[in-house]
Design a protein around this nucleic acid. Structure first.
Lengths: 217, 217
DNA sequence: ACGAACCGGAGGTCTATCCTCCACTTCATG
DNA sequence: CATGAAGTGGAGGATAGACCTCCGGTTCGT
């Protein structure tokens, strides 16, 4: 009677620790291998039995929701941060860059951001918050005259997707090469320019490219 | 004794027809769904039993080889055609565009071009022919001064991959949107420019983007 | 007409997933 | 410390999908 009406009984200490281990393992596994990472692998990585995972989370769906709720909020926050930048073009570049970084670092989050069919749309609201902010970011930068006038919001979504696709593809060999493609795309997005932006990282050597191709997909 | 030493006996007419049906179905299936399309599906699409497929081809591997040998040769030919263009920049643009077109139209070919792990490398030689031609295409366009000097061959490979990734992603909703991203990338690859290149196709509407995202991945 | 070639597709084998179940262990409390 | 509720691990059931084999029956070509 002292407890709040529906506070679930607190977890036993070992259970709480295991729950944490599971979340950490899941985060790592989803980041590396995407949302189709198996619960068995997650359990193994956490050093825990599969039964333990199912005792804590109804299923994969619930685990994903528990993990990614705040990550999606983080993306919304990044859009806000971009809009807070007084220089429209800088804000725009910040957004595109940060978004690509986030997706490059986490295949699971990438899937959640570019697909509607996971997580029963516990995440729909986050996506709905992001969209208008991106529209604004684009409009501002176009009014300023630095962003080419013929790009639509959907173009930016596709550009983000494509950058994270390279990150996935080459990520095992070089975690950062995708930044070169980003540089290319950003230079393509400028309304006009007389020079090129410097490349932030060295290119893949042919040898490394062969390694990437050995890696499948 | 009249036959050549190792000419395999000619196929019966029905068998020859079925072989053709299988090849056509396989081409379509691999193009739409990539190399992991199942032989069962291919058989069904060809209107033929699975047993018939296995009577003609030892397995998936052999089917892939039979299908894609000339397609890979075609890609080599495109590189040659690009090199034959007297204007280096035009040749370069031609190559990037045609390559993206080909990969956008055929997921199987895309996989073969960007991965080493399929087909036991019956295709290694084709890839080995392509590489030096691309190096040349890049070098020529850089010497001419129209292609930015800081792009490496591997950057182009990654750019091709990433364009075909958008094509895959959005292809079910709009077969041609990827051309907008191509325009962006090409404008980013120019050494300098004062204007933008016109977009070849209209952008995806927000509604359409939602459809794309509904489609998974 | 007749035998060789060919056919379909049921079903065997594998692999990989999600998830259940329960005998056993560990924790927290009186 | 004793006790029982909470927690644990992992074998294994259920399902799914892929590859491929086999063979009774059909069709072609001579």
């Amino acid at each position: 009677m002292t407890a709040a009406p529906d506070t679930p009984a607190p977890l036993r200490r070992d259970a709480a620790r295991n729950r944490q281990l599971i979340l950490e393992a899941a985060r790592a596994e989803f980041a590396e291998r995407g949302l189709e990472a198996s619960l068995d692998d997650i359990a193994r990585r956490a050093g825990v039995g599969i039964g333990t995972v199912y005792r804590r989370f109804a299923g994969k769906e619930e685990l994903i929701e528990a993990l990614f709720a705040d990550r999606m909020a983080e993306v919304v926050a990044i859009a806000d941060e971009a809009l807070a930048n007084p220089d429209p073009w800088s804000g725009f570049v910040f957004w595109v860059t940060r978004l690509a970084e986030i997706q490059a670092a986490d295949r699971g989050l990438k899937a959640l951001l570019s697909s509607t069919s996971h997580g029963r749309d516990r995440f729909a609201s986050a996506r709905e918050q992001i969209a208008p902010r991106v529209v604004q970011l684009i409009a501002r930068a176009q009014e300023q005259g630095r962003l080419r006038a013929d790009v639509a919001p959907s173009d930016l979504a596709l550009a983000g997707y494509m950058l994270s696709a390279v990150a996935d593809y080459a990520g095992t060999v070089d975690r950062e090469v995708w930044r070169r493609q980003l540089t290319l795309v950003l230079d393509g997005l400028r309304a006009r320019r007389s020079t090129i932006s410097p490349m932030p990282v060295p290119p893949l050597a042919v040898e490394q490219l062969a390694d990437v191709m050995r890696g499948g997909a």
